[in-house]
C-alpha cells in the first residue's frame, strides 16, 4: 500500500496539452475518484500513474519513490480496464494467474492465492471456465481478481463499469466499495458518471479541460461546489441555474450580476396552495413535463422563459400546462459570480 502524489503533472501530445500541471495528494488507503466529461484528462492522468503514458512534466511519486521513468511493472500497481482486458484464450484461473506473472512464488502458493482471490470475488465455481462462458459482471470480477491477486500498492480503475447494464453497475459499485473497505488498498478510479463518483469515493476530484476544478468529499462537493461546472456536474438532475435578473423581485436574491443555482430537490412544488413558512424564494411557472419516479416526481417548469426542474412529493404530479408555485427554503440558494462562474457562497 502506498500514497500517490502528483506534482505539477503535465501531459502534452505534440502541440496539444491534455493535462495542465495538476497537483494532488492521494493518501495511503484512500479511494479517490476522478470525474469529469470526456476529454477532461482524467483517463490520461490515470494512465500516467499506471505508466502507460509518458509524463511530459512534473513529478509522480508512489510511496516515497519518484516513478516518472519506471516501467508499469516496476510501479507495483494494478489496473482494471473498461473492456476488462481478460484473455479469451485462457481460463479464469489462468487470467487471474497473470497478475502473479512476476511473483516469485511456487506453483502451489500461486494457486492458493488465486483460490483466495476467487473466493473473495465469488468466482470459485468458474475458475476453469473461459471468459466467453461468463457474464459481463463476472468478466469484470475476473479483471478485478487479476488486479488484486498480487496485493499491489494501488488499484487503478479506468471506467470499469461503463460496459455493464444499469442494474449490474449498481451491484458492482457496491462490490468494489466493499472490496476497498476490506483490502484498504489505495484506489484511483476514473469515471464520467457522477453517481459512481458520489457513491464510491472517499474524495472526488472534478476535472475539466486538463485542470482540477475541485477536490473534496462527495458531500462537500454537493454542498459547496466551487464553481458552476461542479455545481451542475455533481447531483442528479443537474442544478437549475438562473441569472439573478430572472428572479427579480425576490427579496433574498441579490440584484447584482450573479447566477443563482437551485437544486431540483430544493425547489419544491406547493401542494394544495399552502406556501410553506420561511420560504425565501417563490416561483410560478407552467408545467412542461412530469417524470414520476415513485418516491418523488420531477416537474419540468417554464418560469418566464427559463426551464427549471422542481420536485413534487410522491406521485403527486401536476397536469401538464397547469401553473404551479414552487418555493425554496433558506440556505438552499447557491450564488455564483456571473463572469468568473466562481462560487459566492450560499444563501
Amino acid at each position: 500500500m502506498a500514497s500517490i502524489a502528483l506534482e505539477k503533472l503535465v501531459k502534452r501530445y505534440d502541440k496539444v496539452e491534455a493535462v495542465h500541471g495538476i497537483d494532488l495528494e492521494i493518501a495511503d488507503g484512500e479511494f479517490v475518484v476522478f470525474v469529469g466529461p470526456s476529454g477532461c484528462g482524467k483517463s490520461t492522468t490515470l494512465r500516467m500513474i499506471a505508466g502507460l503514458e509518458e509524463i511530459t512534466g512534473g513529478t509522480l511519486r508512489i510511496g516515497d519513490a519518484v516513478v516518472n521513468e519506471r516501467a508499469p511493472k516496476a510501479r507495483n500497481i494494478a489496473m482494471v480496464f473498461q473492456n476488462y482486458a481478460i484473455y479469451p484464450h485462457l481460463t479464469v484461473r489462468q487470467n487471474i494467474g497473470f497478475g502473479l506473472y512476476t511473483a516469485k512464488l511456487s506453483k502451489d502458493e500461486k494457486n492458493a492465492r488465486i483460490d483466495d482471490t476467487a473466493r473473495i470475488l465469488g468466482l470459485t465455481d468458474y475458475l476453469e471456465r473461459r471468459p466467453a462462458a461468463l457474464s459481463g459482471g463476472q468478466r469484470q470480477r475476473v479483471a478485478i481478481g487479476r488486479a488484486m491477486v498480487r496485493n499491489p500498492s494501488a488499484f487503478l480503475f479506468d471506467e470499469p463499469l461503463s460496459n455493464l447494464d444499469a442494474q449490474l453497475r449498481a451491484q458492482m459499485r457496491i462490490e468494489i466499495k466493499k472490496l476497498h473497505q476490506e483490502l484498504k488498498t489505495t484506489t484511483v478510479y476514473v469515471t464520467h458518471d457522477q453517481i459512481e463518483a458520489m457513491t464510491m469515493a472517499d474524495r472526488i476530484v472534478v476535472m475539466k479541460d486538463g485542470n482540477i476544478l475541485q477536490t473534496g468529499t462527495p458531500v462537500d462537493l454537493y454542498e459547496n461546489p466551487a464553481d458552476v461546472f461542479t455545481a451542475r456536474f455533481i447531483g442528479s438532475p443537474s442544478m437549475n441555474m438562473l441569472p439573478a435578473l430572472a428572479l427579480a423581485g425576490q427579496s433574498a436574491v441579490p440584484s447584482d450580476d450573479v447566477l443563482v443555482g437551485i437544486r431540483p430537490h430544493d425547489l419544491l412544488a406547493v401542494v394544495d396552495g399552502a406556501v410553506p413558512e420561511g420560504a425565501i424564494v417563490t416561483l410560478e411557472g407552467v408545467v412542461e413535463a412530469v417524470e414520476p419516479l415513485g418516491p418523488e416526481t420531477m416537474v419540468h417548469l417554464n418560469v418566464a422563459g427559463a426551464s427549471l426542474i422542481a420536485t413534487s412529493p410522491g406521485t403527486l404530479s401536476p397536469a401538464v400546462g397547469s401553473r404551479i408555485t414552487c418555493t425554496v427554503q433558506p440556505g438552499k440558494l447557491y450564488l455564483f459570480d456571473a463572469a468568473t462562474e466562481k462560487s459566492l457562497g450560499r444563501k
Partner: peptide, 13 residues
C-alpha cells in the same frame, strides 16, 4: 485490443 497489451505490461510481461 490495445488494452490486452497494456494489461500485460502492467502485469510485468
Amino acid at each position: 485490443p490495445t488494452t490486452f497489451y497494456e494489461a500485460a505490461r502492467i502485469d510485468g510481461l
